[in-house]
Design a binder for these strands. Structure first.
Lengths: 217, 217
DNA sequence: GATGTACCGTACCGTACGGTACATGATTGT
DNA sequence: ACAATCATGTACCGTACGGTACGGTACATC
């Protein structure tokens, strides 16, 4: 049995459907939203439009399925260590989180899906945006929350408001990089692996200056 | 003579054209991108489509003109104080900057234009995005840069890399609020004036912890 | 009062897209 | 072997949009 498949979240999608969604995502990544036409998806995936409508209902259903499917793929690896650990191990875990955050949010597919959801966020209740917030941001946020919690329990960090600490951590890591990348800019600090690493370390340094247990104020 | 008009940047737009752009912006704000049809703009502004094409070339020209026009309106008030000033006055100025940043980026028109630019950022070189970055972010950034510079000259702040200090300041102020608002979420910390004020003060507090001259490391 | 300019309103054209219907081939269960 | 189910490919329909053309109107300039 393939152990890889076990790390994926179970979805209600057929293999064929996932293949179609995969090619639709690829279409979105290098073509933008205007490239996502029902005929285009069908052509790229060698499937019929009728199948698309049978499986996903309508165009918005296809888009929602793309987000759900992608979210099931990038599900971040859960924490393995317990709450009791050394300060060095915790710092390392925090840096891993920061690095993962940068990698995920700067990924082409993530950017394309965020652009898609933002582009139609002004219309109605915008289920796409909610889907992206729930399955994207909130998942990452939950992981960070338990991480911060364990840091506090381990006596490494000190804060009153965990949510505020998370916001600060996020801000120090991402800054305005996300929006700039969404606008199509190639952010220098995201260029290569070492630049990302450097930025990550600096961000965590600042976070420790603000929330370390040994903080001097 | 009206002194207000002098604070506006000169643009090449006629009064009539500005009125048309104004109603187009209003259309965009409460209708999203899909509401911006040439016929819709003409109808809302009581002008003819032919005039639209004569003035702005094509649909993208209209969108570009909307961004340029809006940017000319929200041009932030320039700093008046010189580099030599008290620490209290500088801190106050920094808080004013933070407050202005929050107000501008959470404005309905700003959000709508950012959504518009992001929505079509994946296509080509995307002149809309560049326009928004140049006339939006970079203007604000320049203002913050001279502000930070004067803070260093006044002996209040200490940093080696001014750009890095700005990124940190921005991250502390905005966090992921911008993206969340772009996705349509109503961020609690942006709800009312006092919540914004509280958040602003906390952000500047953290910034001072990191970049104050009296920092202890 | 003639001429030119700028604008409005509307009608029109071509195209592209979302969605549906149908005919043909594959696959599976019995 | 055969029927039933499913998927593909194609053809089609209605509509909405970008862009253009044209007739009509107000106004200014000479």
């Amino acid at each position: 049995m393939n152990t890889h498949s076990e790390t994926f979240i179970e979805t209600d999608f057929t293999e064929r459907q996932m293949a179609v969604l995969e090619s639709a995502l690829r279409l979105l990544v290098d073509g933008g939203e205007k490239a996502i036409t029902t005929a285009g998806i069908a052509r790229a995936a060698n499937c019929s439009k009728e199948s698309l409508y049978k499986w996903f209902g309508d165009r918005d259903g296809i888009l929602a399925a793309m987000i759900t499917y992608q979210a099931s793929k990038v599900r971040v690896s859960a924490r393995l260590g317990g709450p009791s650990q050394s300060a060095e191990a915790f710092r390392s875990e925090l840096e891993t989180f920061a690095s993962d955050l940068l990698s995920v949010l700067s990924g082409k597919t993530s950017l394309a899906l965020n652009r898609l959801a933002i582009g139609q966020a002004s219309n109605d209740g915008s289920p796409l945006s909610n889907l992206l917030i729930e399955r994207g941001r909130n998942v990452v946020r939950e992981r960070a929350m338990v991480l911060l919690q364990s840091g506090q329990l381990a006596g490494v960090l000190r804060f009153d408001d965990r949510a505020e600490a998370f916001d600060t951590l996020y801000g120090l890591i991402m800054g305005d990089f996300h929006v700039r990348m969404l606008l199509g800019e190639t952010v220098p600090a995201m260029r290569d692996e070492i630049a990302q690493r450097e930025h990550t370390v600096a961000a965590i340094d600042k976070f420790y200056l603000l929330y370390s247990k040994d903080r001097l104020n």
